[in-house]
């Protein structure tokens, strides 16, 4: 049975630019169950990290509207002290940028140990040290006893990333948000880290939000996938449906731009135009319309909403029914990865 762990309702996260607030996350509604991996994909700047930071309560100057229910408790509106207690204990995050997340003046062993102290107060110092070393070993760090005593600047980028992962999984959290956890790592280490995250899910029933631009990682890890564009969810479905029958023009374009590892293709698909900056985002109509100028404008909804096409498969706007790639005919325009 699927048990709800996190419920995000109409979340709107806005940043102040000059005198106005602009929403980077714009009316996002999502649920995450225990023992589930929800993948979030989307272009750079689409609001994925802003969403993650909102759930973790880590934005200090953003305006947050809507509800974030973690085990039925609204954490969008609780005291910083209570939130602090949840963080690093019941919920944890792997950060996209490892340098900013580590304390440059503290050896890494102590940083991991500190996290353990939050949760397992009755561990002896020796037990804690052993546990830290075994965590370092689990994330694939060679010579963990040696690395225990090193400062962040003495480690390579990939090693720092793994220290962050060790901190995040140290207390076996119920909710783990992993923001591009493996982007800086080579594939063999990546595979090892992904296995570790899977183990956490299987052993502890952890619910996981996995943010990544690597669609291969999503295909291998996720149970469901949400696709974000310009602050909104434009499509959400179980992983099989999303890869076999993607509907939203953005999702289809994204899948088409991956270098195919199966067979050589000549040209990769490129999405025309660029993601507009936050203050210039289109706020009315279909936000992706400008990126598909060859499609007749009349096919978009005036106020696009998510439509449930099949149980659990939601797509924003009706334009997907009329979408085709510029270099293909309109007839055979409907296929995913196969």
């Amino acid at each position: 049975m699927s048990e709800k762990l996190l419920e995000i309702k109409n979340l709107k996260t806005s940043f102040r630019i000059k005198d106005d607030y602009y929403a980077a996350v714009d009316d996002v509604t999502l649920t995450l169950n225990k023992n589930e991996v929800l993948g979030i994909v989307g272009e750079s700047g689409s609001g994925k990290s802003a969403l993650a930071f909102s759930v973790m309560g880590l934005h200090n100057r953003a305006k947050i509207e809507g509800n974030i229910l973690f085990k039925d408790q609204d954490i969008a509106n609780i005291s910083p002290a209570k939130l602090n207690k949840l963080r690093g204990d019941d919920m944890a995050m792997i950060f996209q940028d490892p340098l900013t997340a580590l304390n440059p003046l503290m050896i890494v062993g102590d940083q991991i140990s500190e996290t353990l102290l939050l949760h397992k107060k009755n561990m002896s110092q020796k037990q804690r040290k052993d546990r830290v070393i075994s965590l370092l070993d689990q994330v694939g760090i060679p010579y963990p006893e040696h690395v225990y005593n090193q400062f962040p600047h003495e480690l390579s980028g990939g090693m720092r990333q793994r220290v962050i992962i060790a901190i995040a999984i140290a207390n076996q959290p119920e909710l783990l948000i992993a923001d591009e956890p493996t982007t800086a790592l080579d594939v063999t280490i990546q595979a090892q880290i992904l296995d570790l995250i899977k183990d956490l899910k299987d052993d502890m029933n952890t619910g996981i939000i996995l943010i990544t631009h690597d669609l291969g990682v999503v295909a291998e890890m996720a149970d469901r996938v949400a696709v974000m564009y310009a602050g909104q969810i434009v499509e959400i479905a179980d992983v099989h449906t999303l890869f076999e029958n993607p509907l939203h023009p953005y999702t289809r374009s994204l899948l088409n731009s991956v270098p195919n590892t199966q067979e050589g293709q000549d040209k990769l698909h490129v999405i025309q135009g660029i993601v507009p900056s936050l203050s210039k985002l289109p706020r009315e109509g279909c936000r992706f319309a400008a990126r598909m100028p060859w499609i007749d404008e009349s096919v978009h909804e005036e106020n696009p909403v998510l439509h449930e096409i099949k149980p659990g498969h939601f797509v924003r706007c009706t334009c997907h029914k009329h979408f085709y790639f510029p270099d293909e005919s309109k007839e055979d325009s409907n296929h995913g990865v196969s």
Partner: peptide, 22 residues
């Protein structure tokens, strides 16, 4: 071989196979 096996597969239907292979 290990490197090639570690490449994530973009087709979720191959998940079990891929795991076994790895």
């Amino acid at each position: 071989k290990r490197l090639v096996a570690a490449i994530p597969d973009i087709d979720p239907r191959h998940r079990a196979e891929q795991k076994q292979f790895r």
